[in-house]
Each structure stands twice: as C-alpha cells, then as structure tokens.
C-alpha cells in the first residue's frame, strides 16, 4: 500500500501559458484592488515615499559632495612653505619638490615679490619702508597631483619641514577635509536612515497587505478549497506589496526632485561665494529606477511578512 506517493492518480491540470495567464489575472486584479482603494493606496505611497526620500536625499548629497570635493580649489590640496628670512635655498627647494612624482607644480614667491604683493593688496607698503630689511619671507606653494593621497601629502610636508631654511609648513586642506567629512557623514546617515526607514516601509506595507488579506479571507478560503496552491494564495498580496512599494519609490523620486529644485539656487549661491560651481548630478533615470526597484523590493518584503502571518493559519471549514 503506497504511503507517501510522489505521483497521485489525479492528473495535473496544466495549460499552455497557464502560469503567465495566472500572473496576468493576478496583476490585473491587484491593480483593480488598488484603484478601488484610492485613499489607502495614496496614503501608503506617501508613507513609503517619505521613508525612501530621506535616505535617498542623503545618498544624493553624498554623491554631489564627493564630486565637489574632487573639484574643490583647483581640484587638490596644497602645502605652503614659508622660508626663514634671508634663506637663499628657496629656488633649490622648489626645484627639488618639482621633481617629486606626487607634486604637480611649485610656485615660488620671493621676498621681494611678497613685499610687492603685500603693498599692492594692502596699500601699507610705506609702513614697511622704515624697516631695515624686508620682514616678509619667501614662500613656496606646492600643488599635488590628482592621484596623490593624504599619506603622500603628509610625507612631503614632513620632508620639507626638515629641510634647511624652512620656517613653517602649512597644509591647506581644511575645506576639503570638511567637505569629505560631511560627505562621509551624509553617507553614514544615508545608510542608518536607509535601514531605519526601510524597516518602516516594510512595516507600513505589511500592515496594509494584512488589511487586504483580511478583506479577502473568504475568497482565499474558497480558493484553497478548489485547489489553489500556496503560491497562488500568496501571489496577489506580493503584487500588492510590489505595487505599493514601487508607487512609494516614485513618490520618493518626486519628493527628492522637489527638494533639489528648492535647494539648487541657494546652494549655487553659497558655492559661488567660494568661487566654486557645481552641476547637481545623480538624479537620473538610473536613480529613479533604483528607487522604484528598492521600493518594490521593500514592499514585497512587507507583503511576505504579512502573508506568512495571516495565511499560515487559514482555517477553511
């Protein structure tokens, strides 16, 4: 007597294109359900959209700050070297530095040139004429190559400090460091908020799908009775979740776009005060597609959560 058969004596009723036909019917029904419950659907889209918009904005901010950091101040950090008064080896030191691979250029300002610049900029040249000697030192401005890292910068600064006739070395990278720090902070916040709000989006969708399941319990019971598989019972709700999530992703894209429109002018004004320009980037078709895809995936995750809870204990009779 067979106990656990692999094949039963009943035929499997399969039809050509049946699987696709089933998906098409479910997708159509899911769209119909969502359009019949407009208020709920709009609310879910808005909630999921807000949940996705904040981390997406932070990611976009991080992308633009990285670009800004790369272009800032001629593109790269620099080192100013101030020589001791009367030091005669400034030109020689400049030549040595120019030979280093990580150095792109060295601009030498002699004592006389420094005095001339000071006089020109301040108009206080007469105040210095009474002094016995020029009090302004010669200086070098060292600009680094694009591929020079922070370690190379520090190494060059250290070697210059140790050179004869050098009074002071100033590494001018404060703004760049700030921009990079803000960029890293934005990235970290993006991930943290992304995780938190992602969980929020999953829970919002799960709650909504749970209501949808409850409103269709009778239909699910009958479907189970007439031979629907677990996958068939789950499928409509996975579509709900995906549609709610995808709609939320679109709303998030609209919110981010709105934010960019509002922030663009004041941001460009701010950058203009530092002689910088920036074309805001990152908000493109790929970004919107990623938001919609992510929203869809989160929505489906919420639906899976709800379906597991509600369908596991479906009591038919």
């Amino acid at each position: 007597m067979p106990d656990s058969p692999k094949q039963g004596p009943w035929p499997r009723t399969s039809h050509r294109w049946g699987w696709w036909r089933g998906h098409w019917r479910v997708a159509r029904d899911a769209l119909s359900f969502i359009s019949r419950h407009t208020g709920t659907s709009l609310l879910v889209w808005l909630l999921v959209g807000i949940a996705l918009a904040l981390p997406a904005s932070l990611m976009l901010l991080q992308t633009n700050l990285s670009r800004l950091g790369a272009d800032w101040g001629g593109g790269r950090p620099s080192v100013s070297v101030y020589m001791e008064l009367g030091a005669l080896n400034a030109a020689e030191l400049a030549a040595q530095l120019e030979r280093r691979a990580e150095v792109q250029a060295v601009a030498l300002t002699s004592q006389d040139e420094a005095l001339a610049e000071f006089t020109a900029y301040t108009g206080l040249g007469d105040a210095l004429t009474g002094l016995e000697r020029n009090p302004l030192p010669a200086s070098l401005r060292v600009t680094f190559a694009a591929n020079a890292g922070a370690d190379a910068l520090e190494a060059v600064a250290a070697s210059v400090r140790a050179a004869e006739g050098v009074a002071d070395v100033v590494v001018e990278r404060t703004w760049l460091e700030r921009i990079n720090a803000i960029s890293r902070l934005a990235s970290a916040l993006g991930w943290v908020f992304g995780a938190l709000f992602g969980v929020g989006a999953v829970l919002v969708t799960a709650t909504t799908v749970r209501f949808a399941i409850d409103s269709q319990l009778d239909e699910l019971k009958v479907m189970k009775l007439v031979g629907a598989s677990e996958a068939q019972l789950r499928r409509p709700f996975l579509y709900f979740g995906a549609l709610y999530g995808a709609g939320g992703g679109l709303v998030a894209a609209m919110l981010v776009s709105l934010g960019l429109i509002i922030l663009e002018a004041p941001l460009l004004d701010l950058l203009g005060s530092f002689d910088q320009t920036l074309v805001l980037g990152g908000f493109d078709v790929a970004f919107v597609a990623a938001l919609v895809g992510l929203g869809s995936a989160l929505g489906m995750a919420g639906a899976v959560l709800a379906v597991r809870q509600r369908l596991a204990a479906l009591d038919v009779m």
């Binding site: 039963g8 009943w10 035929p11 007439v226 031979g227 598989s229």
Partner: peptide, 22 residues
Amino acid sequence: LVNGVNVSRLSARRLPHYRQNL
C-alpha cells in the same frame, strides 16, 4: 486512501492538484 494513495501524506506541492480533482 484515494485510489490507493494515502492523501493525508500528500506533499504541499501535490495537494493543490489533488484538490483540483475534487
């Protein structure tokens, strides 16, 4: 047993096909 098959041991995969024939 339905036609000799113990239906209470049907797998979750086979069960819908069985029910479709009832």
